[in-house]
Design a binder for these strands. Sequence first.
DNA 1: CTGAAAGCGCTTACAG
DNA 2: CTGAAAGCGCTTACAG
Lengths: 337, 337
Amino acid sequence: MVTLKQLAADLGVSHGLVSRVLSNRMGNTGVSEKTRQTILSRAKELNYRPNPNASALKRGLRGSVGVFLHKIGAQGTELNLTFVDKVATCLSDRGLNLLVRVFEEDEEFLTACNPALFRRIDGLIVAGIWHHSLALKLNQFEADGLHVVTACHGANHNSSIPNFEVDQEMQGYIATRHLIEIGCRNIAHINIRPPRHQGYLNAHQEAGLATDPRLNIDTEDFTRQSGYQAMQKLHTLGIPFDGLVAQADSQAAGAMYYLLEKGHPKESWPKITGVDDSPIASDYCAIPLTSVTAEMKTSAEMAVAAIVSKIEGGTATSCLIPPRLVVRESTVPGTLA
Amino acid sequence: MVTLKQLAADLGVSHGLVSRVLSNRMGNTGVSEKTRQTILSRAKELNYRPNPNASALKRGLRGSVGVFLHKIGAQGTELNLTFVDKVATCLSDRGLNLLVRVFEEDEEFLTACNPALFRRIDGLIVAGIWHHSLALKLNQFEADGLHVVTACHGANHNSSIPNFEVDQEMQGYIATRHLIEIGCRNIAHINIRPPRHQGYLNAHQEAGLATDPRLNIDTEDFTRQSGYQAMQKLHTLGIPFDGLVAQADSQAAGAMYYLLEKGHPKESWPKITGVDDSPIASDYCAIPLTSVTAEMKTSAEMAVAAIVSKIEGGTATSCLIPPRLVVRESTVPGTLA
DNA sequence: CTGAAAGCGCTTACAG
DNA sequence: CTGAAAGCGCTTACAG
């Protein structure tokens, strides 16, 4: 557990110099390259790490970043854990601590957002679903001097707060394009988020195909139940279709469950896609589900980079992250899981 | 953002006194009750919070606790997120930071356990599955002066490291007792963890019932697939049974899926129980599943209390946490979800 | 090109 | 009963 002073004494230079060299904040100070190298290599040898508490104290920082998570995704998707894990690792790599809170309801969020908490963090990453009252709150935090970035779905791009979310329109688009490419010509849609629906429409337009509005089923939430009911409605309609774009793995699971329960042989099922690429897709669907990624890791990385930049006085701009398609049995039989 | 000195100046006393009063560490110091109350109330009014960095620095602590999570439970159970969330809240309430890492493989764990990390934490909470090589590693950390507690399943109780886990024998016991109470007399068992199996046996013995060893199906893992295959084996055996104790919600889900796929009417299904009380039980089973809790929140609370106690120079002892039964449709039709 | 010194906000042994 | 003072491990403006 070597300290700066011990390291400096060992090297025979002042600890101020060592600090400046190691943190690469030389200011008006100069060093010979030789001394610099000696300091760097000895620091490595002795495994020196600055004490984050002392550093933060001196620099007037807290050394922690808050990560507030509104639970998103249907239960069981584990999107949240993936996000937290990645944020934690990225922050830790930069010597920052993490203050996590997970919320199910807005009220809990507001309670947790108290002055006591804000005394302990330099910045706040908020993840979940974007909505107007949340944005107002966050703008107020910014005005009070707390740096904020979001990794929220459906963010308003006019907001001055940088946001990092997957491109939902592209999610709808690549799922639909995939179905078209493998030969589907009548593709139903379990609809809830307009951007994803737009992607569904765009893929059809690009391929010169018409969409049948009757095959679009609006739903209220991302539960398995809503997928089940949507499939039931489609079935009742009686219009044949050979593809189904669901907006969540959980909904796709519910749709498959309906088909299974009603005894439809699997060979007769439409080709189905989901969204999230969650354990539900790989393990909890009747047929392993082709799905579009939610890019939680990427948004975590970007959110951390952005909050760090803001804390250090820099800037950060929003980014819409492109998703990827993960092909499984539900659209291409014989695919290895 | 009031500091100790500002608060002291406002009160007209020395900041040393304020520190001692607020932290309740009076040592040889005395204060009149009146002064004490004045200090306390003014601190509250001004919303004073000690700077955790300064406090930790002075006290020779790091102010952070590591939480290392070996992913446990089948995917989709969200046990891990529940645990992290609770640990985070408990630590935060005590002014401690959190350094989370989530691991899937032992190797990642070992890589993360490096000196650089240990410079940043006062203690380590390890959650996941207990195994011997892990224990050796943890004992070594303890020897190196890092405080460790575990919240691991299947811990060896001879270990000197305090462990907080749900009572697995009781999990098997209360699930089985419940089935016996509602009238089941031939109860199959999807078996993987010996303690849970022991609980299954104990419940029978207590009720004066014999168990049929042929209805015990050994499995290799907690996946849905293993539950599916176990149900298939039971079906092939042809021995009638009216209850089924699965050792995980995921296995129960797989067993139900088999029954559904083979077209067995739900009325003819055995009464089924799971373990974990996860979203799988409530949302992803063909029938909402009666399940036994994993008590992740309680073990998180206990682990935090224990690590804090150790850091502050106290002691901590292991605890086996009693689980609870959550009754749903799969054993008592008509139960509200 | 380099070092001495002040100070971040606390805690606590010590002196009165 | 109470306060002045040293010092935790850093960073950085300043003097040489």
